[in-house]
Design a protein around this nucleic acid. Structure first.
Lengths: 348, 348
DNA sequence: CTGAAAGCGCTAACAA
DNA sequence: TTGTTAGCGCTTTCAG
């Protein structure tokens, strides 16, 4: 079955407000108003215009309108990662919330690369989005966003936060998130705990690290410096990390992870060593991505409500755009909850 | 198309070509040319213009340019799902390939809902993207895309294909993909095989189903009608499906799945029944998402090269946009490969 | 209630 | 090599 070029790309004359106006012998202004259901136009003409527009296959040109109104109705979204469950699930939430409000998403990704982040955000900016949602890369400094701030583009940070940026932010209570994880382990008898993944070059990592140390003190746990492994939040750092930790003379009985991807890597590394999470060793993740409940063993983790983050982010952003937000910087810190599943068990 | 803009926000004076031109006492045309490095402008003025532009914080307005040139440099991407690994990984490939070519992505998702697909694609269209990449929902008919085709918007389908649409397409060889899975199982002695997930309302499902039946005949396998379970490509259909299949009197010893998500569901359902993939039962997935190699047991699956699909899709699309593509419909059918891991084992 | 006209920021003819 | 001019398709005063 071979389809040859049946789709003849006929360059049809564009149908615009003008062509509709001409056809109906009215002004473009009337057409514009009628199409937008402005109450000022007569019901009869409104109907006529809309009908003709439909029959002529008219397509609204948002860029043209945006040029005039200085409103594009697009929301730019810049994330350092989009292929990982945490962000792709959040992205879906963002897209759906935006769509429900009649906004469209422009997307950029920059894989934890500050230079690319610059490039991506600058490019997105050239489309004059009404606002931006972004998650800064590690090592990000306010300076990189200064041009956006100066231009008065509404900006909301999601998941991660740049120090002293004075920008709206939606995230989880990172300290509490970490504390819940450690507390759970402590309560089931673990007193030798490792921390794998995360970097202090990130607000998240910084807060979690501090909370870890605090919890260690509060619960009277033992921790060796070699048990604290920084690294990005990937499967590989989890896998490599646990192997390294368990190759030492002194060994922990449990680990808390920077996120679920790291935790899955730890689970995998454990198996390589002939150990099994939930039996020989306990591990708790962070985020509660869909996969966490579906994996085997199911991952004990802390739910950071990333879907809600996405929703809140666009809601705040839209309030800013509409000018209905408070003057003050908005910070939504969601409260995390512990989800106990199969990768943790009382210490033997 | 209905929007109400009653926002009041303090906008600082925009810097435009005009303001730069005025500042330098040259014409806007010169500035425009200089900024784009047109060889026609004198080197000296070029430098001067670029320097001033930078110092004034000039930001190119792509929408304005697009209005004039009828080129937006945006690629619209419509997917029925973006939170699942298969598509989010593909999306990353699309975004990266597009960025490398100086294009930006507008994103829409429609969760297998034809009505929402309509809405999303129409909305994206209003931004006049240079082209669109999309994966049609189940039950999609050409009619839904007719307005896009008629408008001459370059369109490329990815992963799934609408019958007789006569549109460019990038996907895997679905029949071969299924055959590889069944063949592998047959070769290790399985002759009672179930097929879980997928729907005939999709090109993918249709081809896979036919290939399954063909393979069953070719390899002389036994299949009960109750072992063929249609359903969407989700974890839940896998989980529910295997439980249903294994509740019958006659039971298969293996299952092929519509995709990896379904396979993970099957693995999970199996455990609920006290069975274990790779021992009591064999399962093979489809796609080879990142998670497949990381799960436990690691999933035997067929690699359908979804990252490459994304890359090819944007490359074809850009060729169409540039007018450098063949007249004929382009179809890139990638060759799948079997990846044997831990969820399959010789039948006992 | 409807029309005329200006102009958003840019590019492309065509002149100079 | 640079300037002038005319729009792209839309919204928005301001008149009528």
């Amino acid at each position: 079955m071979s389809l040859t070029n049946t789709s003849v790309r006929a360059e049809r004359p564009r149908v615009t407000l003008q062509s509709i106006a001409k056809r109906l012998a009215v002004s473009t202004a009337t057409v514009s108003l009628a199409l937008r259901d402005a109450p000022v136009v007569a019901e009869a003409t409104r109907q006529k215009v809309q009908e003709i527009a439909r029959s002529m296959g008219y397509v609204y040109n948002r860029s043209a309108a945006g040029l005039r109104t200085a409103r594009s109705n697009v929301l730019a979204v810049g994330l350092h990662d989009i292929s990982t469950p945490f962000f792709s699930e959040m992205l879906l939430a963002i897209e759906e919330t935006a769509l429900a409000q009649g906004r469209t998403i422009m997307l950029g990704a920059y894989t934890e690369d500050a230079q690319r982040q610059d490039r991506v955000l600058s490019m997105l900016r050239e489309y004059h989005p009404d606002g931006m949602i972004f998650c800064p890369t590690a090592h990000s400094h306010v300076d990189a966003f200064e041009h956006l701030i100066a231009a008065g583009i509404p900006l909301v940070q999601v998941a991660r936060e740049i120090a002293d940026a004075g920008l709206d932010f939606v995230g989880t209570d990172d300290a509490m998130s970490m504390r819940l994880a450690v507390q759970h382990l402590a309560e089931i008898g673990h007193c030798r705990i490792a921390s794998i993944g995360g970097t202090k070059e990130t607000s998240t990592g910084l807060l979690r690290q501090a909370a870890f140390e605090q919890a260690v003190r509060d619960f009277g746990l033992t921790v060796k410096p070699e048990w604290i492994l920084e690294g990005k939040g990937s499967f590989d750092t989890g896998r490599a990390g646990i192997q390294r930790v368990l190759s030492g003379a002194e060994q922990p009985t449990a680990a808390v992870c920077a996120n679920d991807s790291v935790a899955f890597g730890v689970l995998n590394g454990l198996r390589t060593l002939g150990r099994e999470a939930g039996k020989d060793f306990s591990v708790v993740g962070s985020d509660d991505v869909a996969e966490a409940a579906q994996a085997y063993p199911a991952l004990t983790t802390v739910r950071n409500r990333h879907n809600e983050m996405g929703q809140h982010a666009v809601n705040i952003l839209i309030k800013r755009i509409m000018g209905t937000a408070d003057e003050a910087v908005e910070r939504i810190i969601l409260e995390p909850t512990l989800v106990v599943r199969g990768t943790t068990a009382p210490v033997k």
